[in-house]
Write a protein that binds this DNA or RNA. Structure first.
Lengths: 241, 241
DNA sequence: TAACTCATGCGTACAGTGTTCGCATCAACG
DNA sequence: CGTTGATGCGAACACTGTACGCATGAGTTA
């Protein structure tokens, strides 16, 4: 019905004079995050984002140069969700670092679509929020007493661990999300295929798979905490020789 | 000139009867890796891959279900490059694990385009080569003396660290490769912008940036080795209480 | 030798993508 | 009132992954 679209003279059918600033960079980024959270990274297209905001796809290009740039903005925006504690003195640095790491992981699991992007922009990506986070983490290690030249390496080690495990988990969760099942259904459903594939590698079939199928999420939490403790153990050993 | 394309009767102009098995799954995967190494992940399209192999794009679909499946195959193929040492007894487990980790990182840096894929398929991806690798690594930790239930968590910790740091490095290297510069040119060229962006976060400006600009690759190597040692320190501590 | 089967290659087509360009609109300003 | 400059948007381009159906010809059977 093109008649509907024609410039009708009636005040009611005529589209509102679309006030300025209806479309801002902030709103676009926010809506993109909402879309990504809801439908995953494969469903983010400029046109789809456009219709969601009630505009044409090409209008977005007035506020954002690229889809790539949009993604950079989006990634930095979720970094902004992190609330990194300021560096405490004494021996409480470990608690602070643990909290930072835990929050970074939680953020990644909240937005699993970020995993492939981290592999593309990495941490070269220097948005303001990412910079703030890195700086705060460095401060925590400095307060712990690491010498200047080692402070860098120590934070790098921690970040690598957290990003590595969170990325792996996020990829796993994305795959589950795409299937529409819950984590438990997915795990128990795939069990026979997995057992079959690893028949010649019995070592891969760890622990009581029954228990593992029951509380997959709890096991992931435990694994994360275990590794984090080991990494921090290894780093702490450098402080008290 | 469509005349050229028409089914000419001459034996010479007529295309060779294209012997069977000209196109195999193995050849497709191999050529895809070559293309990825040469031009990066953004340049891999089925048509481009097709013309490279002297066939039409759609012909590839006789041997590969999807582009996604092709990528799964490609990822597992590069896992096959790894030569994981068999588990040694005694205290030499640490050397073996170190070598495995180093090789895994080297493989990722050889094929930087793999980083975003690892974030998509993660390690849920159970191709035969990936399984072989995981199994061998588990064996190394078992030989080290980890109890059964902890063996899993220990390997997970190590893998997370290696994947995290290698992924970050790979993303960084991909970005450089796309710019056409060398790593040194890139680093020194971006220095002013970086210094500017981190003016309010002086902690981020680590060490003598002059030396850092001179041997960026060596510094990455050192950082990797440092973190790997810390992670292994933390894990070793669990063995001798 | 002749007929048949069926895996393989490929041309065409479709729906969808990111992005460019030029035109229309309209708030703000002189 | 006239001008300017920012903003929205329709149309178009080059490109993507992939479904479909037809042609070919090697291998097998009669």
């Amino acid at each position: 019905m093109p008649a509907d679209e024609k410039p009708s003279t009636s005040v009611w059918t005529r589209p509102r004079p679309r006030q300025r600033e209806h479309l801002t960079r902030e709103q676009i980024v926010a809506e993109a995050i909402r879309l990504l959270d809801a439908e995953g990274v494969g469903e983010l297209s400029m046109r789809k984002l456009g219709t969601r905001m009630g505009t044409a796809a090409t209008s977005l290009y007035r506020h954002v140069a690229n889809k790539d740039e949009l993604i950079e903005l989006v990634v930095d925006e979720v970094y902004g969700e992190l609330d990194v504690p300021t560096a405490p003195g004494g021996t409480r640095w470990r608690a602070a670092v643990t909290r930072t790491a835990t929050e970074l992981r939680a953020m990644t699991l909240r937005h699993p679509w970020i995993a492939p992007e981290l592999g593309q922009v990495g941490l070269v990506h220097v948005g303001p929020n990412a910079v703030r986070m890195s700086s705060a983490l460095l401060a925590q290690f400095e307060a712990a007493g690491f010498p200047a030249h080692e402070m860098d390496q120590a934070t790098g080690t921690l970040m690598a661990y957290v990003i590595g495990i969170a990325t792996t988990e996020a990829a796993y969760l994305s795959q589950i999300a795409r299937s529409g099942k819950t984590e438990q259904e997915w795990v128990t459903g795939l069990r026979p295929a997995f057992d079959d594939a690893t028949r010649e590698h019995p070592r891969l079939r760890a622990g009581s798979s029954a228990q593992r199928d029951a509380h997959p999420q709890r096991i992931r939490d435990d694994n994360f905490a275990y590794g984090l403790d080991r990494v921090l153990d290894g780093l702490t050993a450098r402080l008290t020789p």
